[in-house]
């Protein structure tokens, strides 16, 4: 595919200079999976240390989930697995109505993720590569909306929800999260660097309209970022706690709302609470692997089809 460089596009911050730009276009077919260099033992050591530090609390919650309430309160806390993991998991699953909560949350988080990623990519692309009036002002507005502290908006949001009679309904937690300023900003910053303007121009020359450009050029180029954004959004939506707790009840809960009902008693049962927390986290780890695969593999797959 020939890249027609009709006019000097605004120089991306990314491209370091003239000669690279030609290479950059040539590389279009490279799309090499992974990185450019093999890691040495030092790399593995450092990564292993960080990975260990990262997963310890999660692993510990599994250890805690495998003990009884009494054992967890003992003078020396347990440092290895006990025998009650499945008992606690079962109790958590049943007490918290987790089956329904999981289905609800998968629906909520997936809807939010798809719409956030889609709309953020479209808007991010427009802000990164298209020209239109009031672009900079609108972009600043997007960033401005990220700066509103969220803990108080619950009150007016519930006013609206009460007016709409949406309390206890899932749309009350889905609709307010359908777009994200964070996502728009993230996509813009990514595409400014990762999407060569020549590719868009070339597609235009070939007669593509904007939607075709988006489909055949922008989406392929944005794929790693879309995967990352999808991952982060999914986790955010999955773990969203305060607002769903206000808006929903245990009868029709998301996972986090369901978990607030666990381990009841004057002294909450930590074993069951941790079992619930563990169950609530597992789907995320699965999602990580699914999204994670999308991040690998470079950006230019399919960019030439347009």
């Amino acid at each position: 595919m020939a890249v027609v460089n009709t006019q000097p596009a605004p120089q991306d911050a990314a491209t370091a200079g003239g000669p690279e730009r030609g290479r950059r276009a040539r590389r279009a077919k490279a799309g090499a999976a992974g990185g450019h260099l093999h890691g040495g033992w030092l790399t593995y050591t450092i990564l292993a240390v960080f990975a260990l530090g990262s997963i310890v609390p999660l692993v510990y919650s599994a250890i805690a989930a495998s003990h009884s309430k009494a054992r967890l309160s003992e003078a020396t806390p347990p440092f290895w697995f006990g025998g009650r993991l499945f008992t606690n998991l079962e109790r958590a699953w049943e007490d918290a109505n987790l089956g329904k909560a999981m289905i609800n949350t998968i629906f909520v988080a997936s809807t939010i993720t798809v719409s956030t990623v889609l709309f953020a990519t479209l808007a991010g692309f427009a802000f990164a590569k298209l020209r239109f009036r009031a672009k900079n002002v609108l972009m600043l507005l997007v960033i401005g909306t990220m700066m509103v502290p969220p803990q108080l908006t619950v009150v007016p949001m519930f006013m609206a929800v009460a007016e709409l009679e949406w309390s206890n309904h899932l749309q009350a937690v889905i609709l307010p999260m359908m777009v994200s300023a964070f996502g728009v900003f993230f996509m813009r910053q990514y595409l400014v660097q990762a999407l060569p303007t020549e590719l868009i121009e070339a597609a235009r020359v070939d007669g593509s309209n904007s939607l075709r450009v988006v489909w055949h050029v922008v989406f392929p180029a944005a794929r790693p970022a879309m995967a990352v954004l999808g991952m982060l959004t999914f986790v955010l939506a999955w773990n969203e706690f305060f607002w769903p707790m206000i808006a929903l009840t245990q009868q029709n809960p998301t996972v986090q709302v369901a978990l607030t009902g666990l381990g009841q008693g004057y002294v909450p049962d930590q074993g069951v609470i941790m079992a619930g927390a563990l169950l609530g986290t597992l789907p995320l780890l699965i999602a990580f692997v699914l999204f994670g695969k999308q991040i690998v593999g470079g950006i230019m797959h399919g960019a030439l089809k347009g």
């Binding site: 009150v155 519930f158 006013m159 929800v161 009460a162 009679e165 309390s167 206000i246 808006a247 009840t249």
Partner: peptide, 9 residues
Amino acid sequence: RTRLGQNSG
């Protein structure tokens, strides 16, 4: 509190 404030839910 939030729900009492709006008398809803």
